[in-house]
Every structure is written in C-alpha cells, then in structure tokens.
Design a protein around this nucleic acid. Structure first.
Lengths: 339, 339
DNA sequence: ATCATAAAGGCGAACGTTCGCCTGGCAAGA
DNA sequence: TCTTGCCAGGCGAACGTTCGCCTTTATGAT
C-alpha cells in the first residue's frame, strides 16, 4: 500500500557502514570521518529515511505520549475551550518530542479503569486531566500509582500534585471591583453548587471584592445552581422581582451561558442591559461579543494553560524536579456594553 | 516511577507455560487444556497483565493510529465542530482498536511535510482530513503516496478518494424552500468566495430551490465575501439600502457568524427580525439558540460524520474494499424565531 | 622498537510481541 | 505392533531501534 519502509539497515547498506553506526551518527553519539558522515547523510536524504517511532519507543520503553480526555459537552453547550487547549498542548508537545493521545471520557469508576489500562499497556507516559473537581477519583488513583500527571484545575488542598489553573477568584474579584467602581452596591452573583471547586473559587473573588469595599454580602444575592441558560434566567427573574430597594443593579454570572440567561430575564422585565442592569459573564465564549448588547466577560488564558500543562508534565515524566509545581494564571476582564 | 511493567514472560512464568503459549491463548489462536487456560487467566488477573501496545504495534508493523489535524480558529471564532467531531472519532476508533493522533496544522507546503514525516516514521496508519477545499495539496500528496485517508469534505471532482461530507446543497435548499413556502420571493444569500468548495455547494442549494420555485435568481441578491460578522453585517446593510421594492425580505447566510452580522444590520435599520426580515444561518452553533430572536439555522450531523470517517478509514487501512467510498450526510433545518 | 591512546566503526543483545513451524504423547484404526 | 492423526504446547525468529562493549588502525610519546 504505502511505499516500503526505509530502515536503518537500508541506509547503512547504501552508505557502506553498519546500521548501528548510522543510528549513532544520526543521534550525534559518535564521531565519524567526514566522508562517512557525508555518505550517511546522502543515503538518508536519497532514501527519505525517518526513524521508526514505534521501534524507538519500544527500545526506550516509553511511548512519548500524553494522555488527555475531556468531558464532551451536551448539545447546546459550547466547548470553546477544547480547540485552544488541545491545539496548544499538541503544539507544545510536538516541540519536545511528544504527542497527545485523546481518549474517551467516561464518568465514575469506568474512567479510572481507562487510565489503568492506558498505563498498563504502556500507551502513555503521563496524563493531563481536565474537568477536575474535589475528590477526583482519577487524581486519587494516579497519586497512588505514582504515575506522572498534571491537572488543569485544582482539587483537594491536602493532595499534593502538580496543577495548572486559572485564578478564578481573581477573575471574579476583578469583575466585581469594576462594578463597584462604577457605583454598584447591590451586586448579585449567579453561582454554582457548593460541590464545584471552580465555582467556589470564582465565588470567593466576589466575597473578597465586597469585603475590600466594605460591603456586607447579602445571602439573597448569592444564588446557586447549575450553569445553564434556564437556571441563569430563572435566578435573574427571581432577583428582579425583589422589592425595588433590594433589587440588584448588577449581576455577575460564573459562566457566559448563565449570563445570557440573565440577559433574557432582564429583557423580559423590560430592563435595558448595561444601564438599568449591568451583567458580566465568565469564560468569554467567542460569540458573546455579538450579543446585544455585547457581553462583558472574564477571559481565560487557555492556550497558555495548555502549554504549561505539557511543560510541567514532560518535566515530571523525564524525572526532573519541578521548579514550580503549581501554576496559577491570571484571567482578564473584557469590558463590553453589558456592564 | 510507575509499577514495573508486567510482560508475557511474567505471566508465563507464573502459569508454568511458555510465553508464546500465553500470547496465543490470549489471542484465541490456540486450544489448551482447561486447567492450563485457568492458570493463565489467573496469572493475567493477579499480575494485572495488559499487552504492551508498542511491542504489539512493532511486531504488526503498524501503529493503529489515525492522524488528524484541524485548522485552529482565530480568536473570536468558534470551533464548535471540534468537540463533537473529535469525540466521535475517538470513540469510534476505540471500538475498533485504533487511536486518534492529533497533530499541528500548518498552512501550505509545510503541512504536506508533516504528513510525509508521519508516514515515514510509521506514526500513523491513515489520515482523516478536515478543512478540505479544491486542489488540496494534502489530497494530492496522499493520493500519489497511495496512503490511506478519508477526507471530511469534498475536493476536485476528478480526484478519486474516499470522503464523508455533509450535503450543504440540501441544507441550503431546505432552508430556501422553507422561506419560499413562507411566501418570501426576494431572498438574498450571503455567500463565500468562489474558491470555497463548501461555499459553492451551499450556494448551489439556493439556486436549486429558486429554480424549482421558478424564481429567477437575481445577481444582486448573491453576495460573496469572507464568513465573518463584519462582512455579514456590511452585506446586509447594502441589501437593506436597496430601494424598497427590490429590498429582500429574507436573507440566508452560509454560516452563523455572518447571520449574526445580518441580525446586527437589521437591528441598525430598525427592522424586526423574523417579521420584517427573515434570517437563517448555517451550522447551528450552540449559542445561536440564545440570540434575540433565536436564530434559525442548518444543523449538521457532525458526530455521525466523525464516526463515518473512522469507519471508512479503518476499512481502507485494513485493505478492505469499501462498500461505499462516499458518504453524504443530510443536515437538518432548525427553525426558530428569526425566520 | 614499544607501548599507550584515541579515533572510527563493528557487533551482539535487548525491548515485548506475534507468527510459523516443530515435537512429544496419546488414542484409534489397521 | 505399527501407523496415522490430533491435541497441547514449545521454540526460534523477527519487527527497527539503541546501548554497551569490542576491534582495528593510525598516531604520538617514550
């Protein structure tokens, strides 16, 4: 089917040396006479030789693969993260001689079994984990196995492992500080259930910003629920139906989908978004700039996170001690007309 | 670092047979006494043996990997395709014992070099191509190399290769027929430059629907440009500034981003979308359901396409003759309030 | 003339599989 | 008793690398 494979032996035969010599020369592990060198290089060129990666890995006892899987979003949700994150991982991995191996994501214990299989079959040298949360069974498993991995996201504080995360607290804090700076005092937040580490981190920024401004957090301004459009809309309707003097003048949502729900609710109540009610989202999904009005949101340096994950992981795999085991990246607030 | 690898020899030693026998038994290529079988299975279980994939591939002379790369979208654009497409490929590949190997996408000749390298190094057994267009150099190269691949998208009609595509013509035709059925006669289309195969296919559906309805296509209703928000907006402003009796009552855009631009333009001219002006997009990006009004759009069976690509490719790689070399999937029109 | 040294390159082995062929033993038929 | 055939399993080889050690020849110092 494909052109027959060119091996070291073919190159060696043409260059008139042993194949081991070719190997060493190509890997720069040996001094040879200049003419020999030239003959070898010519043979490589003419035959189009490339080292067989499988054989190399076989010998090395490693796969030079980084396992990665992600939660597939349900239809109607976007995973605008994936493209950036995966692209940057693939690129960075390529630079240091690795590949990224995507594998299916399953929930619960089955997922751990997949990790176990990939390890045992020698398929991967390490993992990058996404969608990390408290008590993540994958982390627990990998720690026990002492198998190299880097988590994109934090988990239980008592667990000691390498992670890269985006400072959700800072993102929200920045947004809330902006709202306060614009004169808002009654600021509500559409938050997530307490079992979400990401949600709690982001909520924390809200509390910190209020505290700094010496505003007492009102429990009725902190609503929790799933991060969907419908939930965001329902929560906002509830907030807008509070008596006028308690009704919030600004709403921050922990993701854009909820923020869009909030915008819908505001419109239903006849409010002008941006003037009657300020709304800020989180994630800066690609389309929110085209909403009416364009949604302010917190943008995360996803590509940078992907790069860092690979960098840390490769260091771990190669047995280096990490200069920094934790990387916390700063998001940035993108202000548009909605706030 | 990781637990020491368990090999066939370890299993064999524990079961008291030769390692080759273990191999054959596990692969079902040999009959053995029931007790032997039991001993082997017990040993496998107790030691947690999994065949080493690299060694297996080495022996097989194949990688069981499917190469895939995609064009990373510029910031501000969504690649809502990737998640679905890649997930379904990974899943389907897993079922038949393959993995998907993502690699960086580069433009032009460099890209072909990457393909060449991946082939020569034995990294992949085949490719799935995305973002295919006319005169695609990758297709040209792979055809010449006789290396297995499946394209997601069509290219030059004279080239003979396996592809999976979504029937863009049918998608647009369906949308235009819907508009005609709603009484629209002056229907404009925001199309793409003529060098886009996808764009031309979709445009074709527009022409066909008009012809069926015996409406003469007006050149001034067929606008071409890049598929961005700004272009969509500018084109629409131009259309809306036509004299009242020539102004279109409906606009179809070849992607959602342009459709969103059209919505912005309509709003700028004070038109009510859905009643004064019907707008339909293409792609059904996840967020368009939340626009105001929700955007009607053509939805593509992306996951199905990913599955089919893998199915065809694996058949090719394994040397089977394909029952069907071309798969054309039908998109569906999702009607919302914008049209 | 002798010996150590370095340069240039060869050689065998190993990584963990799978594949094809071989063998020893046993039962049944002639 | 001898052959035939089958069952259960063993054995060597090979895939394409890399690694460690060995050999040969030339060079220079003693």
């Amino acid at each position: 089917m494909a052109a027959t494979k060119v091996t070291l032996k073919d190159v060696a035969a043409r260059a008139g040396v042993s194949y081991q010599t070719v190997s060493k020369v190509l890997n720069g592990e040996m001094q040879v006479a200049p003419e020999t060198m030239a003959r070898i290089q010519a043979a490589v060129q003419e035959l189009g030789y490339r080292p067989n990666r499988i054989a190399r890995n076989m010998r090395a006892g490693r796969s030079f693969m980084i396992g990665y899987s992600w939660t597939q979003t349900e239809p109607g949700q976007v995973n605008h993260i994936l493209d950036q994150f995966l692209s940057s991982m693939v690129r960075e991995a390529g630079v240091v001689g690795y590949y990224v191996l995507p594998f299916p994501f399953l929930e619960g214990n089955e997922q751990v079994e997949i990790y176990r299989d990939l390890i045992r079959s020698g398929n991967v040298d390490g993992f990058v984990l996404s969608s990390v949360n408290y008590n993540d069974p994958r982390i627990q498993f990998l720690l026990k196995q002492k198998f190299p991995f880097v988590a994109f996201g934090r988990s239980n504080p008592e667990w000691d492992f390498a992670w890269v995360d985006i400072d959700g607290t800072a993102g929200t804090r920045q947004a809330i500080e902006y709202l306060i700076g614009r004169g808002h005092r009654r600021i509500a937040i559409l938050a997530w259930p307490t079992d979400s580490r990401v949600g709690n981190d982001r909520l924390q920024g809200y509390l910190e910003a209020l505290q700094t401004a010496q505003i007492t957090p009102e429990p009725e301004y902190i609503l929790r629920g799933e991060g969907t459009f419908e939930v965001g809309r329902a929560m906002t309707l509830h907030l807008l139906d509070l008596p006028a003097e308690r009704r919030p003048t600004a709403i921050m949502a922990l993701n854009d989908t909820m923020a869009i729900g909030a915008m819908a609710a505001a419109r239903e109540r006849g409010l002008t978004i941006g003037t009657d009610l300020a709304i800020i989202g989180f994630d800066d999904a690609p389309m929110v700039q085209y909403l009416v009005p364009p949604l302010s949101s917190v943008r995360q340096p996803i590509a940078e996170a992907g790069r860092k994950c690979v960098e840390l992981l490769v260091a771990l795999v190669e047995g280096q001690t990490l200069a920094q085991k934790h990387v916390l990246l700063q998001p940035s607030l993108i202000i548009r007309a909605s706030a």
